[in-house]
Design a protein around this nucleic acid. Structure first.
Length: 512
RNA sequence: GGUGCUAUCGUCUAGUGGCCUAGGACAACGGCCUCUCACGCCGUAAACCCCGGUUCGAGUCCGGGUAGCACUACCA
């Protein structure tokens, strides 16, 4: 009775893919891979009014960047969207005909009915009656096929009257939902309303109907989605039953929500710019309202860092391990180790993860990634060997690739001014004298490498009792422009003899 | 308002009745390293929501309370 594991990620193309959605996709992916099953991607675009152009491409591109592979449905292939699989189409807007027959099935079996109440009428009703709900207690007082003669219903439809199909929820029944994370959840059907399943206005089903029909037809075995869906899970159970699909109903797992780092509530798309960190994987240019939202990729995040960070927001392995590769996650992940409570989004930890993964990347690779930042600072066609070297010297002090510039700028551009604080603390009365003498010592260096320089400079300092700190810090200011940076001989090594001496002379002129 | 879910350091979490004088990580703080700034290393501070019950024994099980969150659309 073991069923092939088939899971799906089914976003709506209503904008950029929220980071919480990314985590849902990730958990689905990990679960599928672990069980040797299939990960499907389906687009749920049944609300034509909320469609945002470019959102679909964005979602697919984001998943591709993160390494969340799609086995079936829609996916990116060389920058183009492709559909793979035998259960298509994978866009709900292209599945109209499929839904028609299932709407009819429910209508014919008496599990659903046609309703003509307009949105305005319903709004008025809700204003008039507190806590109004379209259900077993009220539907007989509304304009629907339960209260109107068959001929009238037909006449209205033929006359082009807009209508919806509602699910007929039987009252007072305890509906059981078995959740893989939360256990048994019981909800009485009285609190469920007769949900709209289909709207004739745009000839499209609503989420609930489309979702159940598609999951059934696509042979989904496990529905792993956000906790916001838990309240409607009983409705879905009832729908499976109405269709006669109870025996193949997928298992449910409702994931804890991602919460705002400050205050309370679930993390929303707006929190990103408000709190100063991205809530989207990629930068998104909303073609509908012209807004631009920052993304993890553009902020300098490595995909593996985002994956690791997200994986641990709501899930934890058996030990104290924090660093996980995707393969390790696939091996270790399990739904019963997913937390039940919501997780506040901790951006600081995300930065730490990126720092860790940055150290794992090769200097050569990082040099390539650093190119745009260099270009932005006027450094074109740099010596890549040299770039890799300076990155090796400084990468352990940054969290993001672009931050490398602050650490390495002096390697590319000689200081034109000198940091005042450093000067005050490290540039002493004797410094000009020391630097002048140092110049001579360096000139006489038989070769230009750390060992040699250290071998002649240190004894010279000692012989005159100048103090290592005093001399070296002044020297550092000449080369860097401030009291910071890697080991001094590492700097001279990259700069070379000519440039090193030139910088000391310049400093001598400027600082006196 | 109704229904549901949840509840361990500031944050993410470990903990499935004795191994818990509650462990790890991020952040914070202190120290070490050192020519500087960092990194790194070492250390410190920091939590079982409350009240009952079960039990020889409860962070862990049960009940109640409280709080937070989600849902309550012809949105997903």
């Amino acid at each position: 009775m073991e069923r092939r594991v088939r899971v799906r990620f089914a976003p709506s193309p209503t904008g950029a893919l929220h980071i919480g959605g990314v985590r849902t996709a990730l958990y689905n992916y990990l679960f599928a891979r672990q069980h040797g099953g299939d990960m499907l991607l389906r687009i749920e675009d049944t609300d034509s009014t909320r469609f945002v152009p470019g959102a679909e491409e964005y979602i697919l591109e984001a998943l591709e960047w993160l390494g969340i592979g799609i086995d079936e449905g829609l996916r990116m292939n060389n920058g183009k969207i492709e559909a793979v699989g035998e259960h298509g189409p994978y866009r709900q807007s292209e599945r109209r005909e499929i839904y028609h027959q299932y709407v009819k099935q429910l209508l014919d079996s008496g599990h659903a009915y046609i309703a003509f109440d307009t949105p305005e009428e319903l709004e008025a009703k809700r204003a008039e009656i507190p806590n109004f709900q379209y259900d077993a207690r009220t539907r007989l007082a509304m304009r629907n096929s339960l209260t109107m003669p068959e001929e009238e219903v037909k006449a209205l439809i033929d006359g082009g009257e807009k209508y919806v199909v509602r699910f007929k929820v039987e009252p007072n029944e305890d509906v059981h939902v078995h959740d893989l994370i939360r256990g048994e959840v019981v909800i009485n059907s009285n609190i469920l309303d007769d949900k709209v399943l289909y709207k004739s206005a745009d000839d499209l089903p609503t989420y609930h109907l489309a979702n159940i029909v598609d999951d059934h037809l696509m042979e989904i075995s496990h529905v792993i989605r956000g906790e916001e869906w838990l309240p409607s899970a009983p409705l879905h159970v009832l729908l499976y039953r109405a269709f006669g699909w109870s025996d193949t109903m997928p298992q449910f797992a409702h994931l804890p929500l991602l919460l705002k780092p400050d205050g309370n509530g679930k993390l929303s798309k707006r929190d990103g710019d408000r709190l100063g960190f991205p809530v989207f994987p990629l930068e998104f240019h909303n073609q509908k309202d012209g807004s631009v939202s920052s993304g993890y990729r553009e902020s300098g995040y490595l995909p593996e860092a985002v994956i690791n960070f997200l994986a641990l927001l709501g899930w934890h392995g058996t030990g104290d391990q924090e660093m996980y590769t995707m393969d390790e996650l696939i091996k270790e992940f399990s739904l019963d180790r997913v937390s039940k409570s919501g997780a506040k989004f901790d951006y600081e930890k995300g930065k730490w993860f990126n720092h860790q993964y940055l150290q794992l990347r090769s200097n050569k690779e990082l040099a390539q990634m650093f190119l745009p930042t260099l270009a932005a600072n006027g450094i074109e066609n740099p010596d890549m060997q040299m770039v890799a070297t300076v990155i090796g010297l400084t990468k352990d002090r940054v969290n993001f690739v672009p931050e490398l510039w602050e650490q390495t700028n002096f390697f590319f551009v000689a200081p034109t001014e000198y940091d005042e604080k450093s000067l005050k603390k490290r540039w002493k009365e004797d410094s000009p004298k020391h630097m002048t003498e140092l110049l001579e010592v360096l000139e006489s260096a038989p070769s230009w490498d750390a060992e040699t320089l250290d071998g002649i400079v240190m004894p010279w300092i000692e012989a005159h009792e100048y103090g290592v700190g005093i001399v070296m810090n002044a020297f550092r200011i000449c080369l860097v422009g401030a009291a910071r940076g890697p080991h001094i001989w590492a700097i001279t090594d990259v700069l070379g003899k000519d440039e090193t001496l030139r910088r000391v002379r310049t400093a001598l002129t400027k600082l006196g």
